[in-house]
Computed example of a mutant assay.
Amino acid sequence: MSAVPAPSITAGRIAARVVAERGELASRFAGAAPFRHVVIDDFFEASFAQRLLAQFPGFEQGNFLSEDGRPGSKSTFERIRALGDGFAALDDTIRDDGFLRLLGEITGIDGLRYDPWYLGGGTHENRHDGGLQAHVDFNFHPLERWQRRLNLIVYLNPGWREEWGGALELFGDPATAPEHVIAPVFNRCVIFETHGHSWHGFNRIVLPENERGQSRRSVALYFYTPAAEEPRAAHSTVYVDRPLPDRLQPGHVLDARDVADLQRLIGDRDNRIAQQYGEISRLMTLVRAHERGLAGSMLYAARRVQARLLRRQG
């Protein structure tokens, strides 16, 4: 792989130290567990990180409705070029060959492509009481014949305290405790490989009463490589609900904290069922639309022929 040219479009945006230390970062990425990843503090140049923070969209500007159509604790915004010159510069940077080569040198993955639609990515904002169950991400791009390979997340949370939660969790086994817990502090970047066992999520955000105006903000960027063949094992995001707390054992007397945790776990389960129902409904709508077309007419005719043959054989 060729070296990253200098100067490149990363200048003034990606910290010069990241480019200079890409060999060391590659070693850390390759040797990490439970799956390949690297944590890079001060990822953006300081002034550029502040510029993105200043242009970060308000919660109500993004998509903040949950699966049932009600306001939720998470807001996302995919059209990042509309947010200002800082985010337009970020978009220019991550699509540039120099940046993609830098990312390839750090991760050892050639031929990376950025997603111009930011499907599932863009800006993410999570408020008090929000969290995200352990999951693996969808593995093929919905519009292109691309395989998802990397997530790159940069946090934009000045003054964030670890006891507030919202920490990225990396799991070897989603039914057990996380192997790594990474606080979402300002200008911290996490790059990790995505595949069938890259289980990750973030723990519940618990803000003090006087800090409820704070939120967990990040920029999520996803990268792909061309798929070698037509996807045959494509899947959407797969979640695993958190297990019951260890303290809930026979003989334990429930207190207010226990009841709140149980209500939250049941709510998470109900939301997941509703989400899966929505995905199935959308899939069936696509199937019906497909069957009304030429291919559907041919399939219907073939079914009628098959039924007649079976009737004659009977």
Rank of each mutant, 00 (worst) to 15 (best):
E24D: 14
G121D: 03
F140L: 04
L168I: 03
F202E: 02
E211V: 01
G120S: 08
G130W: 12
Y277F: 04
Q61E: 15
G267D: 09
R304H: 07
L156V: 06
G122A: 05
M284I: 03
A89S: 14
L265T: 11
L170W: 03
T194R: 10
D92T: 12
N139D: 09
Q313F: 09
E60C: 05
D97S: 15
A30D: 07
V154N: 11
R51W: 06
W117A: 15
L112S: 11
N139C: 05
Y277D: 09
Q263P: 00
P34V: 01
Q263Y: 04
L265F: 07
H200D: 02
D41N: 13
I80Y: 09
V240G: 08
D241M: 09
D246E: 14
R303W: 02
R288T: 11
A228S: 08
R242I: 05
A295I: 00
H37V: 03
P142W: 00
A233R: 15
R304G: 01
F77C: 06
P231E: 08
H197N: 15
A177Y: 02
E105N: 11
A88T: 08
E45H: 12
V190W: 07
P231W: 04
A227D: 06
G122Y: 00
I153S: 12
E162C: 04
I106Y: 10
E179A: 10
R311T: 11
L309C: 10
E230D: 05
G31E: 06
R242E: 10
H252Q: 06
R257V: 09
G314F: 03
H135V: 00
N139K: 12
A302V: 02
D91E: 15
L83S: 13
A177G: 13
W164C: 03
A46T: 12
D110A: 15
F44S: 08
D110Q: 14
E179V: 00
G122N: 04
F202Y: 12
D261Q: 15
R216E: 04
R70W: 07
D91A: 15
L53I: 02
G86R: 05
R127F: 01
P34K: 13
S281A: 15
V240W: 02
R242D: 08
R308C: 09
I280G: 06
L254G: 14
G314L: 03
V253Y: 06
V238D: 05
A11M: 02
A175V: 07
N203Q: 10
R81S: 13
Y118E: 06
G23S: 13
D268L: 07
N157Q: 05
Y239V: 02
G58V: 05
Q61W: 04
G196K: 10
R292H: 08
E67H: 14
R149N: 06
F64C: 07
A89V: 01
L150S: 14
P57D: 07
A26H: 11
A234D: 10
R22K: 14
R257M: 05
G98P: 00
D85F: 02
S281W: 04
F35T: 05
E291Y: 00
L262S: 14
A16Y: 01
V4G: 14
R308K: 10
V38L: 03
L143F: 07
L294A: 09
R216G: 14
G196N: 13
E163N: 13
